[in-house]
Structure formats: C-alpha cells, structure tokens
Design a protein around this nucleic acid. Structure first.
Lengths: 330, 330
DNA sequence: CCTTGGCTTGAAACCGGTTTCATAATACCA
DNA sequence: TGGTATTATGAAACCGGTTTCAAGCCAAGG
C-alpha cells in the first residue's frame, strides 16, 4: 500500500537513485543497459515521481497561482477558462484562489499563493493597487489580465476606444439620445468605457444628458431595473449602450415587457460578446472582448517570463460585431 | 534576496527549529517567552512558511485535484466556480486540469494530479469508465460531480425525473407534439433526460414520434439548426424540450427568425437555469440545476472524506422553474 | 534530601527527490 | 603500453520543513 519511491526503483534496477533521477529527467547520459533497467522497473512498479519532493529539491513548484474574481460575470470566467486550457499541455498546473473583488481577500489570496511557492502569478482583474502588487510580487513573474497597470505586464482591452467606436456607430445610425448604463462605480473598465462614450458624443457635438447616464453593476438585473425606470419616467431614448452583455439582456427584457420592439424603436449594444449574445432575439450587436484568448495570452506571457524572456504588455483590440440589435433611424 | 526559512527564524529567536515549528503549528506547548520571540521574529522577517516543504514532510499536499471539462457549457463552468469558492476558506487549494471530455486526456490529467500528491480529487463530469476511476484513484478520496457512478461518491441530479416532470408539465398544458433535442449521444445526462421524456409520453398514452426526437450537442447552434430544419420540413410541434438552456436559446432564435411567437405558437423548456435564462425574451421556463451548489457539496463531501468520515452520494433535486416560455393550449 | 514523574526543548532522522563532487571505468593518443 | 582526458556512476549533501526521541529541567511526594 505504501508509495513506491525512487529508492525502490533504484533497488529493483540495481542502480543508484542518482542514476534513476538522471534517466527520468534525461539530465545526463547513462548506459543503455541501466537506462533500460530503470525504465522497466518504473513501468513494472507503476512508479509516479513525487512532484512535491521534486519541487522542493529544484526550488520550482511547477505551479502557477491564479487569482480569480468570482463575481458572476462571464467575462472573468472565460479568462479563467483560457488560463486552464493554456497550461493544460505544459508541465505547469494552475492553482486557483478567489479574491471576490475585495482588496483584503485578494491580498490574503496572493499571500497564500506565494506561500505555495508558485513559479508565477496570473492576476485576473481585481482591485489591489499597483504599488501593493509590486510589493507583494516582487521577483515573481506576474501577469495581470483585464486591467492596465503601468509598470506591470498586462493583457487588457482598449475599452475607451471600443466604447467610442460603439457610440460613434450608434450616432452614425442616426441616434441622438443614447442611454448608457455604466458598470460598477470604481471599476476601471466601466470608467474607460464611459470616457469613450463621452468622447464620441463630444466629437459629434451632442450634449451629455445626465438623465441618460445611469450606474449599474454589470448584472442583468441592473439593465432591467434601469431601463424599466427610464421608461416609467418617460425619458426618451432610441439606443442603449450597456455595460456588458448581461446588462444588455436585462435591457432587452425591460423593452420586451413594455412591448417596445428591438431594434425598431430602441437599439442595444452590449460588451463582451459572450456565448449567448449571438442567440438573443434579436442577436445582439456587441463589442467582442476576446476574453478566453486574453487568458491564453496571459499564460503564454507568463511562461515566457518564467523562461527569463522579456515581455511587453498586450493590448488586445475589441471589435464591434454587428448583428441585429441596432437599427438605422435616419 | 534569498528566501528566509525556519532556520533563520530559529537563529533570530534563539531557539531550535523544532520549537519554531511547534509555535507555528501550535502542536505543542512552548514557554511563553520563546513563543513570543518566535512570533516577533516571524513578523519582523516577514516569514512565509514553505508549503512545499511542509507538504513533503507531512505527506499531505493540502491541494485538491479538480478535473474540469471545458466544453463551453455553463453548467460545468458553474460547478468549477462552486468548487473554487468552497475551498477558498480552507487550507486546501484546488488545482485544475482539463479533460476535454476525452477519455485519454482525462486519464492523463488524473495521473498528473496524483503525481502531485493531491489529498483528494473532484471529478467534474467526464467519460472515464467507473472501473478505471476505481483503479486510478484507489485509496484517494474522490468525489464525482454531475455523474452518478454506483460504487463511487457522487453528487448528481435526478435527470430522468426532471425531464419526466418537465414533459408531464407540457402535456398538462395541452401539448401533444413535443419535440425533444437530445444532448450529446453518449452523455449520461442526455440519455437520462430522454428516458424521462419517454416515460412521460408513455404514461400519457402519447406516441413517440421519431421525427420529433433529434440529436444535438448541448450547443446553441444545435438548437438553431434543428428547429430551423424541422420548420423547413413542415414537421408540426407545439413545444420543444431542449437539451439545455443554451440549446433553448438556439431554439428561440430559430423561432424568432421564422416569426413564430413564443410561447403563443411554440413553447420551450430548457435545462440548467443558467444566469441568462431568466433574462431571455420571454424569460425561459427551465429545469434548474443547482450547479454551483453541486460544486460546493462535492467539495464539502471531499473535505469530510479526507477527515476520515464516511459519506453518501448526494442526489440533488432539479426544479422546474416556470417562467414565460410555456403556454397552455387547451 | 532523594527519587519519581511530567514538561519543555533541541538534536537528529526523515519526507523523496536533485545535484554536486569525487571516484572508478573507459577511451584516446602518443 | 603507459599516461591523460573523458565519461558514467554512486555517495552524500541539500531543499525546508515535521516528528521522534532522549535529555534536561523543575516540582511534587515520600
């Protein structure tokens, strides 16, 4: 019942444990006969090297710490997926902790990961200030996804530009009263997107109407509530720029409830292009965030950093995918 | 720059490393003065115990292996979320590998986890046969989620009964021609649900019409394709039992494209109750799978097993949540 | 005052690998 | 054939903790 170790192999194969180690890792040439003996013994006993022991000896744990944010939005989930997928074919395994988008939790989580001697860190979103990250993770290869923090290696999207493009597109379709539902108050993405919205309005010489800018929290419910409220108060608008697809779904439902046809009366644009967006009725026009790919990129970057290569931050471009939730109202 | 170890603490505090270990783990009584000295040294040097070393010494890695299936359906993703969340406040950390729902990959993945000396295993879905799991994981606490394998500890849903209830509900609303879109061919959930569908039909004395049973793959696209095809071929039906919510979204879109009102002309029932279901237009009537909770349960069970307690499999009940995608056609 | 018993404590063995270093064996060349 | 350069190999140290074990200490009891 006891675990078989490298010593058992050594005994059975009639060599020293050093030789066994060398065969297993291919770190030095050994005589073909001995090599064969070791391989046979390994096979016969079904030996599985103890990764923990080898981690300790090598000083490399072959694990990557991943800080997730389980805030229930598909964007961050998809990034995690990308990370898992990317490490699947490497000798590294990702180990997950959740920060719950709360500074204290996040710091604790990062500490725990460091205690596990991870070889690198992927920080997905989060709210820990830049300087603190620098402190905590100094000397440890670290990549941040979904946030752009100068001085760190990041994989992020050009949110401002995307929101600008999306708004500009709506304006080009003849929309003048474009409601915007912002994401969480202090969330950088939300701030950036709102900035893009403003820029497009400004550029087109359109006024920023306060009653059209609303604060949500990235949830579907916030879209439902806010648009319902707007309608009740008879605020007029012909388009909605939603914080993300989830919010857009809420918006669409509010409109459905009030028998307002989409896109004939009101157009909608979302953010993310999550799986479901293409199957809404009508299919949602949205800004595609290559979230899963961002997870992959981050992992690839991290691997390179671990290999000692130097890396630049990556800004991925969002892309407005035009489907059927926007109408021209010339 | 070098890492500080327990020896450094011992030297600074003027005690032996044994004592330091005892203070850190509280495994034995030590003189208050020494205890204080150790704590101060730990604090002052910012000492972080090396989990890898302690894992090796204790023979417990404090990690849990999780086999995921990144097949792009929200159900399995949600289970993973539950697992991460549940372990977040324990000294255990989950480590993820993806099996891609392919036997070979899965076995490799499990092997890799065992090599890492995980203290327990959570197997989410997957297609490895029961006996092989028994072989691979013998002696290792293991919980399987989303599958019911006799002889193993499982957390699963009563799919047959749920599909039965859902179908019965449709029949009660006056539906006679109920199309069913099955999930992946050999997927147990799909098989069970279809069995429930058949049982309800049989019980109501309704014939099983072959043209109404279609094979999909849990994707939205399969719903879109299949219903589009049915419509083109003028097959008549008044309701669709979809493989899952994603498929239901595809179904809904196909109907939208053909100007067939939901639920007035065709009713839809999904499976999962994923986040988006409640915000479809109209909100989707669906069988709620408490996926995230299943992840939590599985983790809790595993923790108990690790503690040596004995555990039974858990069958969670799905629940038909009635929203607005089903109409009565008496 | 001496003995017995219970506690705290440090030395050393141990977990299972990797890696250095010295040695033995082989190959090479004159 | 002898001497040196080169390899292959094993012994032992090491990674950073935990745990056993025996010794040292102090208090209580006879």
């Amino acid at each position: 019942m006891k675990n078989i170790t490298i010593d058992d192999i050594a005994r059975v194969a009639g060599v020293s444990k050093s030789t066994v180690s060398r065969v297993l890792n291919g770190t030095a040439k050994v005589h073909p006969d001995k090599k064969k003996a070791v391989e046979e013994a390994t096979e016969r006993l079904g030996f599985q090297p103890n990764v923990v022991a080898s981690s300790l000896a090598r000083g490399r744990s072959m694990t990557i710490g991943v800080l997730t944010q389980l805030m229930g939005t598909p964007f961050y989930d998809a990034i995690s997926q990308g990370v898992i997928a990317e490490f699947n074919d490497t000798p590294y395994s990702p180990i997950f902790v959740d920060g719950q988008w709360q500074k204290g939790e996040e710091v604790d989580a990062i500490r725990a990961l460091i205690g596990r001697r991870v070889d690198g860190l992927v920080l997905i979103g989060g709210s820990v200030p830049s300087s603190e990250i620098a402190n905590l993770c100094s000397g440890l290869p670290t990549v941040i996804v979904g946030r752009n923090l100068p001085g760190h290696k990041c994989v992020y999207m050009n949110n401002e530009a995307c929101a600008y493009e999306a708004t500009k597109y709506l304006i080009a379709q003849g929309h003048r009263d474009i409601a915007v539902i912002r994401g969480l108050e202090h969330h950088q993405d939300a701030v950036d997107r709102f900035a893009g919205y403003q820029r497009a309005l400004l550029e087109a010489g359109l006024p920023l109407k306060q009653e059209l800018v609303q604060s949500g929290d990235f949830s579907a419910d916030s879209g439902l509530e806010i648009v319902g409220d707007l309608l009740r108060r008879n605020v007029s608008f012909t388009a909605v720029l939603a914080a993300n697809d989830l919010t857009a779904m809420g918006v669409r439902l509010a409109l459905y409830r009030n028998d307002i046809p989409v896109p004939e009366k009101v157009s909608i644009i979302g953010f993310d292009d999550q799986l479901e967006a293409a199957y809404m009725s009508p299919p949602l026009t949205t800004v595609k965030q290559p979230s899963r790919k961002m997870g992959s990129y981050a992992s690839q970057c991290l691997l390179k950093m671990i290999d000692g290569k130097s890396i630049d931050s990556i800004c991925v471009d969002g892309e407005l995918v035009q489907r059927e939730s926007v109408a021209s109202i010339q």
